[in-house]
Structures are given as structure tokens and as C-alpha cells.
Amino acid sequence: MEKTLDQKVKEIVKENKLSVKNIIDIDALDKADIKKIFAVADFFREHFRRGKDKKITQLKGRSIINFFFESSTRTRTSFELAGKHLGADTINVTGASAVIKTKGETLIDTAKTLNSLQADLIILRHAKAGTPLLLTKWIEAPVISAGDGFHQHPTQTLIDVYTMQNEFGDLKNKKVTIVGDIKHSRVAGSLMRLLERYKATVVLTGPQTLMPENVEEAFNVTVDTNAEHAFKDSDVLYNIRVQKERGSGSHIPSLREYAHMYCINEARFALAKKNAIVMDAGPVNREIGIRSEVLDGLMSRVSTQVENGLFIRLAVLSLLIS
């Protein structure tokens, strides 16, 4: 008799136990862990398709709390859907910072409450760097960071590297050019860390005022503020949105001038390698960061990233709390 989907999930999860309890720092995952996550993501990619029954019982009876202090569409939906597909009960706690402001409760006290309610996993997004680590010191439930301040967004990086590997295989010496507001980007923060470990060549481009201090020394990357020069021979152009809500506005004269200098348009895209791809973790700044011709073009992997996002999150949820 053929195995049911449930049985197959149980098996693959059993074969791929991770060495970590939390996913808050991409550097804490060793290459073996990442390989396992990708293997399980491959499995889900094969079995989770539109129109098919996606309901499985792997995490039946488990509770997952999406603890989001910042607005999010794709990350939160992606985690929530993944949890629901796996049979867990997922709850969204948002606007919690408002609770804290109005009732004077600290983040830790709210988290301890969630912990006492026997949550099996807490997924935290927070505007301040280091907050996921703070949480792990106070509660027993595992924590996944869904992005902290300008620091890291580890599951996004798993998605990005998974997407790049599916495209190119080994990333050694592949040139990944990250363009935009690196200073305020947690997506870049964890991506630079992991690409360094996979020996990719990482070039950052964008206005100098949107580069983090001493970034070349911190992450073994090169800064080249000339977009045309930086894009040349790239395998990946990765766009990072100018985050006006984080005050990037005051670091550049105008979005108009920014787009003039850095927007990934067709002419600039042509400077990259022939089979180069375009990526963006979103939300996308159409016509400012990427021109629609490129964003909706054949080499855009922006939708693939979102798809892979679901598979990666199915993988990490099932591996962390099964």
C-alpha cells in the first residue's frame, strides 16, 4: 500500500532533525542544518500544489503564535498558512506594542504569558534588533525570528539561498549584487552572512548614505556605489527597497534621484550575465527599485521567492516542533 502524505512527512521530518532549538540567527545554523531544511522544503515543493489537498496532521494539536510588532503581509501569511497546512493552531498577536504602551506591560511579560498558555512556538517580528534573542532567554517555547530591526531575517535568507541554489546549483564565485537601502535591511543582514559561507561574491551598490558603517569589514563584501559597474557580470541582482518608514528619506535627496541612479531597468539589467536573475524580498517598490519590465520579465524570481517561502516555512515549522 502506498504511504499516505502524513506518513511521508513524518518520515522525512524524522530523518532531518536540526541541531538548533530556535531560528533567530542564520550563523547558528550549520550547513548540515540548512541542507536538511532544503531537503524537507524540496519534499513540500513536490507535494504542495494548487488544487491538491494540502491538509496534513503533522502538527495537529500544536499552537503557533505569530507575535508581530510590525506590519507584514507575506511573511505573516506565509508562516500562518504553513502552520495551518501542517495542522497546527495558529494565532496572530499583533498590535501588541500598543498593548504595552497602553497597559505598561513589557515585551517579556507578554511573551511569558504566551509561554504560559503553552504555545509550542513563537514567531516574532520586531522593529528592534536583538529582541528574538532576548525572548529566548525568558521563555521555553522555541522562537523563530521573522525579522528584527536592521539585524537579520533568517528564514528570508533560507528562501533566498534556496532559490539561488535551485537556479545555479553551487553558489561558489557566483556574483550576487545587492542594490538599495542596505543600511536599514535585515534581509541583507542575514543574506550577506550566509552568502559569505557559501563563498559567493557579494557586491553592494546604492548611495553611500544607505550603506552600513564598515560593512566591507563586517561581512566580506565589496561596496561599489556605481550601479552600472556593480551590475556588470552579476548572476543575481537583489533589490532592497528604500525604506522610507525607517527614515531612509533623509539619507538621500529624493526617490527620483535614487531611481535615476539605481533602479534596475532593462538597460542596467542587460549589464548582468545572460542568465542572471532578479530577486526582491518585497514589498516591491515598482519603478523606483525595479522597473515593471524587469520585475514582470522572464528572469524575475520574485514570485518564486514567495512560493519557496511557503515551502521553507513548512520545513522549519515541522522540523522545529514535531
Binding site: P212, E213, A218, G247
Partner: peptide
Amino acid sequence: KEAWAMNEGVMSTKLGLPGKP
């Protein structure tokens, strides 16, 4: 005037914290 939480440099970039020079 920008909010800061530590010295600005390699370490603030690694930690993703706003720095003060």
C-alpha cells in the same frame, strides 16, 4: 540626532543596531 544604541562601526553593523560615532 538619530537614535543610537551603541558605538558606530563594525560591531553595530553586525548587530543591526544604530550607532553613534
